[in-house]
Amino acid sequence: MNKETTLLKLKTGEKALVKEILGGKNVKEKLNAMGIYPGAEIKKSISPSKGPIIAEILRYKIAIGRGMAEKIIVYENNPDGKS
């Protein structure tokens, strides 16, 4: 089951694989340098109802604005079957 969703909508505590990043070259490069690229594993740490979300990638945490989090398309369930 590889349902697509956005990082913004992903539930707190869930892990997902990045499918693609919508947006321009600049945004993609910026995210890429921080380890967010198609195929990367990302975990949603904190998802408030308003304001930036906090995600965990490669064992460090990052705060991401809501609009940007909406542009990060992820597979809801980790295809490796790990939780």
Binding site: I54, Y60, A63
Partner: peptide, 10 residues
């Protein structure tokens, strides 16, 4: 205004 995108150190 660009969106927040910032590393949160432990």
């Amino acid at each position: 205004t660009p969106e927040l995108f910032m590393e949160i150190p432990p």
